[in-house]
């Protein structure tokens, strides 16, 4: 099958396991984001795909061929490092042409390809500049162009945008995504910014403690998180304990009719997104709570409610501004269709 396949990939440093039994399939041409907290093994996993670290177990396959032990320089990939790693002794053009020069491509052809790539990254005419004289965003683009010079089979980026300021980062995210779609290249990006992952990816892979917690499309990850870690890590959420008996489930002391709980599950946790928590007049909803804080951000309004000893947050749009103030008693409406049942 075409694309990248990781089978049971494991990496140990001494007794410490940085990556645990990772199974992942990346079809040809998709854009995958590895997302997770610091130290969860994202870089390690990417370095194994690049061949810079060897897995201690498992296999890596590219287009059906086992590349687990193929040295990095024979993998035909393009990689952008967090530090960018542009060669300080070479000009912009020479940096971009490096992989072509190494492969013995003729001077004429090198120049043509460099010009092509420079215009792609909107830096035409910069070929003879030393890399030290570029701005952060320009360097970023040069690193991307250098990695794409040979049209690699696999495009890997380790936190490529983390050094940029927020505005430039958002612009580059969109640009990177458009570039990837135009070239149709299989791409893996490491990030710990979930907004970035949601913006760019076809598939988001959430990792924690060296394991994959969930791999799915961004909306799926957001709407149907696989476990409490994913629910909590991606966006804001309310995690609430529930108890179930044969007839129905109860949350915060009130029963929620219609909440589908897997048979035999006695207790667990539900996740409900803040925008799905609706505030009504007390008595109109099964759960009643007290408003503890209102944060009006202009674009959205966050209302914090204490109910049944638990802090809940509800988010609403300005046009549906709840008419509440701190200390007021409100009804909390939880629709069963918005609740995701998670194993605790």
């Amino acid at each position: 099958m075409s694309g990248l396949t990781l089978q049971n990939v494991t990496k140990q440093f001494g007794t410490f396991t940085a990556v645990k039994n990772v199974e992942l399939t990346v079809p040809h041409g998709t854009f995958v984001c590895l997302l997770g907290p610091s130290g969860c093994g994202k870089t390690t996993l990417m370095r194994m795909v690049a061949g810079l670290d060897l897995p201690t177990g498992g296999a890596i396959k590219l287009d059906g061929k086992d590349i687990t032990n193929v040295p990095t320089h024979k993998r035909d990939l393009g990689m952008v490092f967090q530090s960018l790693a542009l060669f300080p002794h070479l000009t912009v053009g020479e940096n971009i042409a490096y992989s072509l020069r190494i492969r013995g491509v003729g001077k004429e052809e090198q120049k043509k390809r460099v010009d092509e790539l420079l215009s792609m990254i909107h830096l035409s005419g910069y070929a003879d500049r030393p890399v030290a004289k570029l701005s952060g965003g320009q360097r970023q683009r040069v690193a991307i162009a250098r990695a794409l010079a040979i049209s690699p089979k696999l495009f890997l980026l380790d936190e490529p945008l983390s050094a940029l300021d927020a505005k430039l980062r958002e612009a580059m995210q969109v640009e990177l995504r458009q570039l990837q779609q135009r070239l149709g290249i299989t791409t893996i990006v490491v990030t710990h910014d979930q907004r970035e992952a949601m913006t760019m990816a076809d598939t988001v892979v959430v990792m924690s403690g060296g394991e994959i917690r969930q791999a799915a499309a961004p909306v799926e990850i957001y709407r149907r998180p696989a476990d409490t870690f994913v629910a909590d890590f991606i966006g804001m959420t309310n995690l609430i304990d529930f108890n179930a008996d044969g007839s129905g489930a109860s949350v915060l002391g009130a029963s929620i009719p219609g909440l589908a709980v897997p048979a035999g599950l006695k207790s667990g946790i539900i996740s409900i997104r803040p925008e799905d928590v609706h505030l009504t007049a007390p008595g109109n909803a099964p759960v009643t709570g007290t408003v503890t804080f209102v944060r009006d951000l202009g674009g959205t309004i966050e209302t914090f409610v204490e109910a049944g000893g638990k802090q809940l947050v509800a988010v609403s749009m300005p046009n549906a501004r709840p008419d509440v103030s701190v200390g007021q008693s409100v009804g909390v409406q939880l629709n069963p269709g918005d609740c995701v049942v998670l194993k605790s």
């Binding site: 690049a50 040295p71 320089h73 024979k74 790693a85 020069r101 190494i102």
Partner: peptide, 19 residues
């Protein structure tokens, strides 16, 4: 990471040392 970058760009360890 400079030599690692060179390796991902197709240079063998010896080539990356010299280039």
């Amino acid at each position: 990471t400079l030599t690692e970058a060179a390796r991902t760009l197709g240079a063998s360890p010896i080539k990356s040392f010299f280039t």
